[in-house]
């Protein structure tokens, strides 16, 4: 499984990339491989406030639905519109073009509480 070193992770298989006060959020390579072909993604509208641990959307394969949970609290400032037509980006490029949302953090320090790549890799082992 691909677990990039420069990202932070959750136990529920989301990843976070911090850029200033904005966190890009997606699901991990492991999560996409467990789900299989992803056929639909439900995302919040920009502007929505999310709290850490809240479900903010869902990811569907043919026979399963998984909620995705906000790794951090803040405001959704961007959603990945490309996923509407190309949900397969979640399978082919989960850490890049397959990101889900960008969240402006209410507390950027909160990111440090997330798992680092070693801890997440250990979780999968």
């Amino acid at each position: 499984m691909n677990v990039p070193h420069d990202l932070k992770y959750t136990k529920t298989h989301e990843w976070v990339r911090l850029d200033g006060d904005t966190a890009t959020v997606g699901i991990t390579d492991y999560a996409q491989s467990e789900l299989g072909d992803i056929v639909y993604v439900e995302l919040p509208t920009p502007g929505r406030a999310v709290r850490e641990g809240d479900s903010f959307g869902s990811v569907e394969s043919v026979k399963t639905v998984s909620d995705v949970y906000a790794p951090v609290s803040g405001e959704v400032v961007d959603v990945n519109g490309a996923l509407g037509a190309q949900s397969e980006l979640l399978n082919t490029d989960p850490y890049g073009k397959g990101y889900l949302v960008k969240i402006r953090l209410s507390d950027p320090a909160a990111v440090s509480a997330l798992l680092d790549s070693a801890a997440y890799a250990a979780l999968l082992a």
Binding site: D37, V39, Y40, S61, V62, K63, S87
Partner: peptide, 12 residues
Amino acid sequence: IVGRLDETAAVK
């Protein structure tokens, strides 16, 4: 008359 069907394509 059919083998396993492509359910992913059926949704997409």
